[in-house]
Amino acid sequence: MYGNLSFDIAHLLAGGLVLVSFMMLYQDRLYALINTYALHALVLSLSVAWQALVQHAPHLFVTAAIALGFKAIVIPVALHRIVKRLGIHRDIETVVGIGPTMLAGMGLVALSMVVILRITPDADPLAREDLAFALSVLLLGLLVMVTRRNAVSQVIGFMALENGLILAATGARGMPLVVEISVAFSVVIAFIVIGIFLFRIRERFDTVDVGALDEFRGERQ
């Protein structure tokens, strides 16, 4: 399988997704983060489209189109507008410094490689690499959620995590389109709900820093 072009390209695209995830980790401005997320979704849609080609699964093209349309265009544009309307162009403060975050991210990628490569010794190599990358993307998305305090960047972390899920699902052969569409739909719903919440939170507390919520609950002095 090694030296095979289709494998190499799939590998490249999935690896690219992990790389973009790392890029997300050190963006400390909201607009930059949103743009990186759009890139993330673009790479995802490319990767899914390549899988569709390799696996001869035309329905995956639909998935790729959804990823491209919704995640790479509609959602980033909407987020840009939200950020503008909320008036938060300022720095996003990461809770942990960039250096430790990147180190933690590397650790997570190593961990997911070890786990997946060890538990799936006799799976299809393409699916195997794909799963390992997908788990890395997922964990990195979670890391973004954990290390940020701004609600908008937490939303982006959540959607990056979801991209990892899509990558995993398309790598494994035979995910039905229905599942894919319902996942995409649920992400849109989540996006809408979180968006509404953002405005509600801002209305009440004049900030979208989730720390304000803790203060409101009276747990921080």
Partner: peptide, 8 residues
């Protein structure tokens, strides 16, 4: 009684 981020 943890904060949202602590739960995450």
């Amino acid at each position: 009684f943890l904060t949202i981020r602590q739960y995450l």
